[in-house]
């Protein structure tokens, strides 16, 4: 990051905190409705001190990783099948488009009925929330592969199975990575949403606890943590992978 850009960003966030503190000092709203930045930081510090925050983050992230891994594996298989077998596309493909329009949170009641208030239920919501984004992007990616790549590989002796791992997935990777990114975003929303309703450990659960205790600073603190993890994954993890892929694949 350029120093001038960094300065701009620091200035911007410093301003938000100053305005926030100013509004709090003006005593327009009571502290139990509108906490000061210091209250929020204190709350985060408690969370760090008794490790409940780390436990919450760890629980949510673990659910996310398990769910997203299943969604990525399933989405890749489904997407490639749809792209390579027209019948699969005409049948399952239309269903996938329909299912993708259901917000992941709408799967929660079904997940509770099927799996009870368990980890499996939450992971189910994460998987179902992320899998279709991975599927559709993989499908689009495979459909958009330069046909010469496939012809060259077959000409050099690649069989269908070898074609999938050595050509289809790497050639479609710029699209597939967008699918992972979308899938992660859906999964992250899904895990927090599901935890709120399941109220069974994790950051979503901590949000709910904050609400039940009328502890606004805890609610805001947890929201900041959720946002922070989002920024970290999007802006660091995915940005690095995307930059590398775009350059190597000659897309920039």
């Amino acid at each position: 990051m350029k120093p001038s850009l960094l300065a701009k960003k620091i200035g911007f966030y410093a301003m938000i905190i100053i305005v926030w503190q100013g509004l709090d000092s003006a005593d327009i709203w009571p502290d139990n409705i509108f906490p000061s930045p210091v209250d929020v930081v204190e709350d985060l510090a408690y969370g760090v001190a008794d490790a409940s925050l780390f436990y919450g983050i760890g629980t949510s992230i673990l659910r996310l990783i398990i769910g997203l891994t299943i969604a990525i594996a399933g989405g890749l298989v489904l997407g490639i099948f749809m792209a390579r077998v027209e019948t699969v596309n005409q049948t399952i493909g239309s269903l996938v488009l329909g299912l993708q329009s259901i917000p992941s949170i709408a799967w929660v009641p079904l997940a509770i009925l099927w799996f009870g208030l368990t980890d499996t239920g939450i992971i189910f919501v994460v998987v179902i929330g992320a899998i279709f984004a991975v599927t559709i992007n993989t499908y689009t990616g495979v459909k958009n592969i330069n046909p010469s790549y496939i012809e060259a590989a077959r000409n050099m002796g690649a069989k269908e199975g070898q074609l999938i791992t050595s050509i289809l997935i790497p050639a479609a990777f710029p699209f597939i990575i967008s699918g992972f990114k979308q899938g992660w975003a859906f999964a992250w929303r899904g895990v927090i949403g599901a935890e709120l309703l399941f109220s069974f450990l994790g950051l979503g659960f901590l949000l709910n606890v904050g609400r039940q205790l009328n502890d606004v600073s805890q609610v805001i603190a947890i929201m900041l943590v959720i946002m922070g993890i989002g920024i970290l994954v999007d802006g660091v993890v995915f940005k690095k992978i995307e930059d590398k892929v775009m350059t190597r694949w000659g897309l920039r």
Binding site: E151, M156, A158
Partner: peptide
């Protein structure tokens, strides 16, 4: 076949491109 636009695989480096058929 040598294609008009080469059809090299951008995700592989030169050596891996050249070795693709052997690896397969």
């Amino acid at each position: 076949m040598v294609f008009q636009e080469g059809a090299l695989f951008p995700w592989l480096n030169v050596q891996d491109n050249v070795e693709y058929g052997l690896k397969i």
